[in-house]
Amino acid sequence: MVSHRRTSQHGPTTLAGVTVLSAALATAAAALSAPQALAEPTAPAGRDAATARVDHLYEQAERATEKFNGANARTGKLRTQVAALQDRTARAQERVNRMRGRLGALAAAQYRAGGMDPTVRLMLSERPDTFLEKAAALDRIGAGQARELRGLRAAQRSLEQQRRETVRKLAQLEAGRKEVARHKKDVQHKLATARRLLAALPKDARAAYARAARGGGHHEAVPDLRGAVPSSGRAAAAVAAVRAAVGRPYAWGGNGPAAFDCSGLTRWAYGRAGVLLPRTSQAQRGAGRQVPLSQAQPGDLVIYRADGSHVGMYVGNGQVVHAPYPGARVRYDPVGMMPISSITRP
């Protein structure tokens, strides 16, 4: 398992510091081996067990976050579709009402003239389909009435179709809401477990972990990017945006500009360049042309892990900018910080 954390850029940590921190983390891990955490994966044995466990929880939380983002995006689309369907259904109902109103006026006129024609009475029934077929065969209605009746029948069929589609989409929307809630609960559970583990550490150990989580406290350190040429003008704009976001906090589900999760950051940066990317890292993998790492250029999206659950933006000279995980800030890291799944050029 590859950790998001990186070593300070101002020199190696002393052996004594590592020993103290590892011992404190191991003690905290033991203190938190309570029943509520048994559902989590078994942590590696040894003095780095607590560190590995926290890192693994953050990784799991990120996977759950991307599932939440995907479900939330799908639900948003369904909500828009349902609204459009409800609008079309309302307009179809108005059309049916107008057509029935015209036939009703005809019936009223006939009634005042001495009685309603049985043909018109049947034309005003809720289901005139069968009558139309019989009446046409018996030549009991005129051409004008037949047109009115056919139009009413078509309008009623369209209305029923719109209603069925609306009901189907509403069912999908409700299922989507439940999926969003399930993934949200999963994220919150993982993060709460990680927070409990970190809270059990001594104060100095927590501070040391926080410094490590923020890249040694130098998350805004700018690597040498001279000579890095973006693949296009829009890629250049996206790189400028993502670099401007360095130092802003991670927030799961964050779309920016104040806080981001990994795919929210890349989507926001390309949005600043006028390009609409999908919401999840998995979907962003397919949002352009695949290129090998040897041909990566600034602006390319680097998708990590086999399941594509993390994404960063390549900014040149072997560096990416990404939103790592809760507690960390948007920062530069080496492109090979974890296993690369693919590289996409939007």
Rank of each mutant, 00 (worst) to 15 (best):
A213V: 08
T7N: 13
D261H: 09
Q162D: 13
P12L: 13
S281Q: 04
T344V: 10
A137F: 06
R345M: 08
R47D: 13
Q36P: 15
P324R: 04
K185D: 12
A84W: 04
H56T: 13
A199E: 09
R163M: 13
V275N: 01
P339D: 07
L25G: 15
R153H: 07
T119D: 15
T13R: 15
A34D: 12
G104W: 06
A146H: 07
Q284I: 00
V311Y: 01
V82H: 02
Y250T: 05
G115Y: 02
L301V: 00
A240H: 13
L122I: 08
H218G: 10
P12R: 12
S158K: 14
V330Y: 02
G17T: 08
E220G: 05
G247D: 07
N317W: 04
E126L: 09
V82C: 04
G256E: 05
A269T: 05
R196I: 00
G104R: 08
R211Y: 05
R140S: 15
V96L: 06
L225W: 06
G176D: 06
M116H: 05
A273R: 04
A73D: 13
M123S: 13
G144D: 15
A136T: 12
G274S: 08
P298M: 02
G101V: 07
A283L: 11
R95T: 10
Q9P: 15
A146F: 01
A154H: 09
R272T: 04
G299W: 05
G308E: 07
A105P: 05
T119L: 12
S231T: 01
L159W: 03
V2L: 12
R74Y: 02
